[in-house]
């Protein structure tokens, strides 16, 4: 039974099966993680290298690209330069994103307040599962409904084709509504109960409590929800492409056909030849899209950091 210390030391220093498994497990799980990072790097790298080719190989001026209003990559303008002004799409994307967020925010936050503060019972039982379910509805379904309901409606009210920024805004509004609502509700739920109790105990009305205490305390979370919804709207491709009309023109009114970065990308990439200017210009649009999603990401982080500091 009793072993000499030397014997025991040898036994305790022999590498056990557990130790071998541990190293194996660490290596395997770390490789999986590295694979994901590699994917991210590859996506950014590939899209950037393709997107920059417009400026490096085709010598398009970056400023012309960002501020030019004419998008006809297969044509050249009076100075013999290709017409690759992306401003109309950039404006289209931002317009549709901002408008849908402006419309969706009051509805989303209002509903979140309702289901969290005013009628928590109905909120938890009906509204919350329903919004969570709607978050999962595929965007093509939103696009299809936009095409079969919203576009004809716009056409009958405003005339024209019905395709345009307004229809796109409507579709995106409904599409991001469940996401923003559900995230706003999470933000409100994170406000400690005693905040409300303290305010009500001081004689404030329910609305004063909601407005002055709950919404203030939840502001960073609500902002994150809205920015998240905007990021989704900005990056949405098919639903928008189906209702916006896909005319790469500067939008003059909300009911004329327009285009966004994503809509031009989805329709164009299959119809151009790899390596051509027309194709490279589209990749530049994809790069703008990618950079914007990084910007949204950064904004969300900044909000989060500020929220923590408070």
């Amino acid at each position: 039974m009793t072993k000499s210390p030397e014997q025991l030391e040898q036994e305790l220093k022999r590498r056990s099966k557990a130790a071998k498994l541990e190293i194996w497990g660490r290596v395997v799980s770390f490789s999986a993680l590295i694979l994901i990072v590699a994917v991210v790097v590859a996506i950014i790298g590939f899209v950037a290298s393709k997107g920059l080719a417009t400026f490096t190989t085709n010598h398009v001026n970056l400023w012309d690209f960002l501020s030019g209003k004419n998008w006809n990559p297969s044509l050249t303008d009076a100075h013999g330069k290709p017409e690759v002004g992306a401003l109309s799409m950039i404006v289209g994307s931002f317009l549709i994103t901002v408008l849908s967020a402006i419309v969706a925010t009051p509805f989303a936050i209002g509903t979140a307040v309702f289901m969290n503060e005013i009628s928590p019972n109905r909120g938890a039982k009906i509204l919350q599962p329903v919004t969570e379910l709607l978050v999962g509805i595929p965007s093509v379904v939103y696009g299809f409904i936009g095409l079969s309901v919203v576009v004809p409606f716009t056409r009958s009210v405003f005339g024209g084709s019905g395709f345009g920024i307004l229809s796109g805004t409507c579709v995106l509004f409904v599409m991001i509504l469940p996401t923003v609502t559900s995230m706003s509700a999470d933000a409100l739920r994170a406000v400690p109960r005693y905040y409300r109790e303290a305010s009500l105990a001081l004689g404030a009305t329910q609305w004063q409590t909601i407005y002055k205490v709950v919404l203030r305390a939840a502001t960073p979370g609500l902002m994150t929800a809205v920015v998240f919804g905007m990021a989704r709207a900005f990056g949405e491709a098919l639903a928008v492409q189906m209702v916006i009309g896909n005319a790469a023109l500067m939008p003059h009114s909300l009911v004329d056909p327009a285009a966004t970065l994503t809509s031009v990308l989805t329709t164009g990439i299959g119809n151009t030849v790899m390596g051509s200017l027309q194709n490279n210009a589209l990749w530049s649009l994809a790069l703008v899209l990618l950079l914007m999603s990084l910007v949204f990401n950064l904004i969300i982080r900044l909000i989060g950091r500020k929220g923590r500091l408070q």
Binding site: P5, E9, L12, K13, R14, R15, S16, A18, A19
Partner: peptide, 13 residues
């Protein structure tokens, strides 16, 4: 008689 706080001790064993 063995110092088990040495780095090369197999902690699992």
């Amino acid at each position: 008689g063995v110092d088990i706080n040495q780095p090369d001790i197999d902690v699992y064993e």
